[in-house]
C-alpha cells in the first residue's frame, strides 16, 4: 500500500477527526510555542484534518497551508475549514511544490516519519523556509517511547524510527540549528486504575503511563540556518 491508499482509507473511516482530538492534547502545546508574527506564512506537513493550519491562522498567521498526500484527508480538511487565509495542497514531503524561502514556519505532527527518505524531506523543509524560519517537528513514534514501536505492524507504510539524538543529528545535517527538544506529556488522556488492566489496547497501566505521561510527544525545533 502507498501513503495515499492507506490514509485515504483512514479518512473515509473518519479517523482524521479521532487523530485530531487525540493529537491536540499535546500538539496544542507545540503550536503555542511557535513564535508566529502577524502576517506570517506557515505550512503544515501531513495535515490530516487540517487543525494545525486553522490554529496557526487564528494565532495571527497571514496564510496557513496544509499539505497532504491523501485526497480524502484534504477533502475532509477543506470541509472543516471556513474563513480565508487557510488553504490545502496535495503534495509529497520529499517534493514540496513551494518556492525557496517562502515560509516563516513549518509544523508537522505525527506525519514526518512516513517520509520515504526523511533526510530528503528535511532538505525540502529547509529549502522552503526563510533563513531563521522554524521547523516544529512533533512525533509520538520514536525510539525512546518503546510502546509505540508496534505501530509499524498496523500500518502498511514504512515508518522511520529515530531516537531523540537521531532527530537532532539529522536536523543539523540538513542545515538546521537545533533550538529545542523535549517531550510534551499527554496529561489529558484518561488512564484507568490498575485493576482495569489489561485493556483492549494496553497490557499494563505502567505501559500506558509510559506512553502518555512519560514520553508523550517528542518535539524537535529546528531553525533554518543562512544559506552558505
Amino acid at each position: 500500500m502507498n501513503v495515499r491508499e492507506e490514509f485515504d482509507d483512514w479518512a473515509r473511516e473518519g479517523r482524521d477527526r479521532g487523530m485530531e482530538e487525540r493529537h491536540l492534547n499535546t500538539a496544542k502545546h507545540a503550536l503555542a510555542r511557535i513564535p508566529v508574527e502577524k502576517g506570517d506564512y506557515v505550512l503544515d506537513l501531513g495535515t490530516g484534518s487540517g487543525y494545525a493550519p486553522r490554529a496557526l491562522r487564528e494565532r495571527g498567521a497571514g496564510r496557513a497551508y496544509g499539505l497532504d498526500a491523501s485526497p480524502e484527508m484534504l477533502r475532509n480538511a477543506r470541509g472543516y475549514t471556513d474563513g480565508d487565509g487557510v488553504g490545502y495542497v496535495r503534495g509529497d514531503f520529499e517534493h514540496l511544490p513551494f518556492d525557496d524561502g517562502v515560509f516563516d514556519g513549518v509544523f508537522s505532527m505525527e506525519a514526518f516519519y512516513y517520509a520515504r527518505d526523511p533526510l530528503d524531506a528535511l532538505a525540502e523543509v529547509r529549502r522552503v523556509l526563510r533563513p531563521g524560519g522554524t521547523f516544529y517537528c512533533a512525533v509520538n513514534f520514536f525510539e525512546e517511547s518503546e510502546t509505540t514501536h508496534r505501530w509499524q505492524e498496523k500500518v502498511d507504510v514504512g515508518m522511520t524510527l529515530w531516537s531523540r539524538a537521531e532527530y537532532r543529528e539529522a536536523f543539523r545535517e540538513a542545515g538546521f540549528y537545533v533550538a529545542s527538544q523535549d517531550h510534551i506529556p499527554d496529561r489529558e488522556v484518561e488512564i484507568p486504575p490498575a485493576d482495569e488492566f489489561p485493556t483492549d489496547d494496553w497490557e499494563s497501566r505502567e505501559a500506558m503511563v509510559d506512553r502518555y505521561r512519560r514520553w508523550g510527544t517528542l518535539l524537535t525545533v529546528g531553525v533554518s540556518a543562512e544559506n552558505e
Binding site: 485526497p71 477543506r78 496535495r90 509529497d92 517534493h95
Partner: peptide
C-alpha cells in the same frame, strides 16, 4: 475540488 494536486507524477 479547489485543491491543487501537486504530487510528483511518479508518486
Amino acid at each position: 475540488d479547489g485543491i491543487p494536486d501537486l504530487l510528483p507524477p511518479e508518486a
